[in-house]
């Protein structure tokens, strides 16, 4: 593999014109194909901005963003996204919400009419995988927040995107639901091996899920530290009680504490 699947080179992003807020500056990172990378950082450090740049929702002010060796100049249909809120369409039943990307992504929308049964079976299978068997006919308001977030995860996966962008997808959930969904996400990732970029402020979440954790500085954000996560998969809740795990989380925490104070962190080689 000569080049990384996602390559961000010296990217800057400024909001609101020349005098606006500088959200990112000199931000560089690489993600290999099939890798699970978590990005953590103090709040307001531009993590979500990074997501939007990679998925092509916003153009970068400076620098290059390459995905699959192509310069990103607009939204990519090879991306699946999930946000902090479930962002389900309230007028659609759960199954129809999950199938929404199929109606939009060019490769699928042509075949959707003729192969609807096949696609529906696939959506139902995904719902089953995340523990929503039998809820396809419900409306979003009939489901709890955690169930809506599971649906949102299914919607991000249904068109089998090679790149999954998760923007704090579990942060609005209670701890137990969140830990359930970590297991679900790990299971999905192990089954399909998509490239994943997960933005989160939960350090345990990052350490549980990712192959590699990147730490961002305070605004303007850039990557100031990187840690490889050594634990074998599948990881379980027991993994999180290992002393090594606790140590890793403590390290990450100290990077972030330093970043909040604006100190330079010595980059730890992976």
């Amino acid at each position: 593999m000569s080049r990384a699947f996602v390559q961000i080179d010296n990217v800057a992003m400024r909001y609101g014109g020349v005098e606006g807020t500088l959200a990112l500056e000199g931000c560089s990172l690489e993600v290999q194909e099939g890798e699970f990378v978590a990005v953590v950082g103090p709040s307001g450090c531009g993590k979500s901005t990074l997501m939007r740049l990679v998925s092509g929702l916003w153009p970068a002010t400076d620098g290059n963003v390459l995905v699959a060796e192509r310069e990103v100049d607009g939204p990519l249909s090879l991306v699946g996204m999930a946000f902090q809120n479930p962002t389900l369409l309230p007028w659609r039943r759960i199954l129809d919400n999950v199938m929404l990307p199929l109606e939009v992504v060019p490769a699928h929308r042509k075949r959707l009419r003729s192969e609807r049964a096949k696609y529906e079976a696939k959506a139902l299978e995904l719902l089953k995988l995340v523990g929503l068997d039998g809820f396809g006919g419900k409306f979003p308001y009939q489901l709890s927040g955690g169930m809506q977030q599971r649906t949102s995860l299914c919607r991000a996966l249904i068109h089998e995107p090679p790149l999954l962008m998760l923007d704090e997808p579990f942060s609005a959930l209670d701890v137990f639901t969140r830990e359930d969904l970590w297991a679900v996400l790990q299971q999905v990732w192990m089954a399909r091996k998509p490239t994943v970029i997960l933005v989160t402020h939960d350090l345990r979440e990052a350490a549980y899920l990712a192959d590699r954790v990147l730490v961002m500085s305070a605004r303007p954000g850039r990557i100031i530290a990187e840690r490889r996560v050594p634990f074998p998969r599948p990881r379980t809740m027991e993994t999180t009680f290992l002393p090594e795990f606790t140590e890793l989380v403590a390290d990450l925490r100290s990077y972030i504490a330093a970043a909040r104070k604006g100190e330079e962190v010595e980059n730890v080689p992976a």
Binding site: L57, P75, M81, F83, T87, L89, L100, V104, P106
Partner: peptide, 11 residues
């Protein structure tokens, strides 16, 4: 956000 969900898919 709802609009972004669709835009991100290339809608």
């Amino acid at each position: 956000e709802l609009r972004d969900v669709l835009r991100a898919l290339g809608a």
